[in-house]
Design a protein around this nucleic acid. Sequence first.
RNA 1: GCGCUCUUAGCUCAACUGGAUAGAGCAUUUGACUUCGAAUCAAAAGGUUGGGGGUUCAAGUCCCUCAGAGCGCACCA
Length: 578
Amino acid sequence: MNIYKDYLNFLKDTVLLLKKKHKYEFDINDIFSKITLEPPKNLSHGDMSTNIAMLLAPKFKKKPFEIAEIFKEQINTFPGIKSVSIAGPGFLNIILDHLTWSNCLHKILLNPDDWDQVNIGKGSNVNLEYISANPTGPLHAGHARGAVFGDALASLLSKVGFNVTKEYYINDAGSQIEKLVQSSILRYHECLGDKITVIPKGLYPGDYLKEVGNALFIKYNNKLKSYDKDEIFKIVSELSLKIMLDNIKIDLLKLGIKMDVYTSEQKIVSSDLLSNVISILERKNLLYKGVLAPPKGMKTEDWETREQLLFKSSNYGDDADRALQKSDGSWTYFATDMAYHLDKINRTNGNLINVLGADHTGYISRINAAVNALSDSKISIDTKVCSLVNLLEDGKPLKMSKRAGTFVTLSDIIDAVGKDVLRFIMLTRRNDQSLDFDFKKVKEKSKENPVFYVQYAYARCHSIFKAADTVKENLNPNNLNLLKAEEELNLIKFISLWPRILELAAKHHEPHRICFYLIELASNFHGLWNKGSDKPELKFIVEDNLDLTNARLSLVKAVALTISKGLNILKIEPIKEM
RNA sequence: GCGCUCUUAGCUCAACUGGAUAGAGCAUUUGACUUCGAAUCAAAAGGUUGGGGGUUCAAGUCCCUCAGAGCGCACCA
């Protein structure tokens, strides 16, 4: 149930009626897609505002103001209207009767689960790939943002009716795995008694590989040395990858994240997907052997011309064609990534979303080109880029260096601040803005810390219920029409926005909107709470007026309900007492 | 040199994806605890939305241009 939708439908009916009556010729669907009926930014303009008169002016060949007059008359016949006015260039501002709002609250509480059902997904499939950190070490702060963002988006899309597959791509092929193996073997030798003073350049220096060395030692003692080279590689790579990935999964679980599918790059490489990609591209005439031009501005002496198999990604908006084969004939990473995306297209039968770190922005256009080419542009891919996270301690940047051992892992952060706080803070910025994560502020119990602020509002709701125990009559929302103070109506109006927020956040793949909404809802509620100190008649509990108390408790209940719905999508536990 | 992403109040950020007088928090100034939890609230002040041009009923939002920041830039993954 969405009150804005209800009235929008009334408006649409009116447009149809007028069009028929005056025999106007225009594309009705075009108009329908552009009509807005929204709460105005400035609430003093009214409860709802529509641009209909401005839209129809060229179609009706009249001035916006004249059309507004016609609609004003019509809107006045809609149910629950208090007044309609015309403003500015032709906006129609609608004020609803307070009974409409209390009725709205009544419906929310009567059917809290139906209230925010916005089924824009209609069961269609979405594949959401996120994190996909290389399995060569523990997750760190930078991964946290993409992880939380992706997971919240997955949760949000499921909520609005998409069938979401949460996927992690394991980059377990290529040279970095060789580095991992060599680094692990080094740690194995360490267990055998070799002294390691310096980790050779290019290998992974982190202590976390000692675990792998140990595991090898326990399993093989000193016998591994006698195996032949290929065998050693196989044993060590399998074991180290397993341990790395298991640790990643443990960290994700700590963050409340459970992926649906882990896809291995090795499996993609050894499948026939790559040859499928080639034959699709061949059929579409998108392949050729050629030489890439050097990037403009690059010194020509550094440039080595070589003939390679290339994909005409520039046909699909990429700024250059891309190599699929290296000069020695082996496949490039991009080629296997195309195969992987073909795999996702085949499996999903729906749209794709990738969540990447900011350092991969240059990669987006070629992946878009790949997906378009492979799917005949039938599948859309949306790539969300998460910008950097600056770790701070009381405003000063936290120095991170793998060598100095001040490497902040995801697990460290969760231990320091808790998963709920981390999840919320990571969503208090748009994904494409860089984000400051200040350990001091985040642990603070004040308005500086938005998680606390929202949780405090929720706790206050419950403290009212507790205080009202003596009057509580099982919250029978019968006399909600007693809610007519401006402050109370404003709160109901703000709560009614929730389904809209959900829909907008889902449509634009922007889960941060939920955080901002919750913070504002908390603010509205704290405000009303404190009004009770100035005007005692506005207190939630009115000793000698059971009906009014009940009505107000219903309002508080709706606040708590909405906060918990929002936190729920972010997978954060609301706290009743703090 | 080229490309991508950005630039909004002193600071950190919003702005319903083109809508009306651009909104919050922090910091500053001033007020509110005998009270349903003051871990909160209210008020004041703070702006040529980096500069300039364009598109239209309407631009922080779209286009062009200049300046600045971050990231990336042929076989790495």
